[in-house]
Amino acid sequence: MKTTGLLAISATLAVSPAMAAERPVALKDAPGRMAVENYCGACHSLDYIRINSPFMNRQTWTAEVSKMINAFGAPIPQTDAAAIIDYLSVNYGDK
């Protein structure tokens, strides 16, 4: 009857934890920030940007944004993508 006992434990755990509250991530205030918050933040927290800095540059940020659009299907219009790349390169790049 050990199996039954294990099932009971598992079933209790099944009422699973609510997601952790997301910590607010402050990005630098500069032109393009809103596009970043809206488009990038739709799928992932913005700490992804902070931890990937400041070693990225315009070329690598461009590749990353292109990957989000082409491989991950992010619906970012071209003008907004340009603003996002500018913002990331200037504020979270090695210049």
Partner: peptide
């Protein structure tokens, strides 16, 4: 899974 339908 993904947040967006277009994400693999």
């Amino acid at each position: 899974g993904p947040v967006l339908a277009g994400t693999p």
